[in-house]
């Protein structure tokens, strides 16, 4: 089991702390975003979304949240997969899939937020 572990049981406390700190950064990005949407009285057009998401504050929060996402989702996927999947091969493949989705999405978001005009 330890061979598949990104964060082995010996680093349990470390990942426990990382999981909670990264959660705060994810809340810091998505809660303003949800409030922006809920408090808009009418349909939010793509241009308005673009202006909001590419403002300096939201870019910074977005990059921090994307980095936190890698930590948070990878620890979460590892915890869930190692709890429920007991066949080593399936566990490896499932975890690899989840890691690829997470890292790929995070890199894509950071690329978009850094490069978009």
């Amino acid at each position: 089991m330890a061979s598949v572990a990104l964060y082995s049981y010996k680093k349990g406390l470390g990942s426990w702390v990382l999981q909670r700190i990264s959660a705060l950064f994810l809340i810091a990005y998505i809660v303003p975003l949800l409030f922006f949407w809920v408090l808009h009285a009418e349909f939010v057009s793509p241009m308005v979304w673009k202006q909001f998401l590419l403002s300096t504050e939201m870019r910074i929060l977005g990059i921090l949240a994307s980095l936190s996402l890698v930590i948070h989702a990878m620890i979460g996927a590892w915890v869930v997969a190692t709890d429920y999947i007991h066949i080593d091969g399936i566990k490896r493949v499932t975890l690899a899939l989840f890691y690829v989705i997470t890292v790929g999405s995070s890199v894509a978001i950071i690329f978009l937020l850094l490069n978009a005009q």
Binding site: P46, K50, L53, A73, I101, T102, S105, A108, I109, L112
Partner: peptide, 16 residues
């Protein structure tokens, strides 16, 4: 939420 991440990235790219 991990599984829908690619959709969120696509919609961000679309908006931008």
């Amino acid at each position: 939420m991990i599984l829908v991440l690619p959709l969120l990235v696509l919609s961000l790219a679309g908006v931008i």
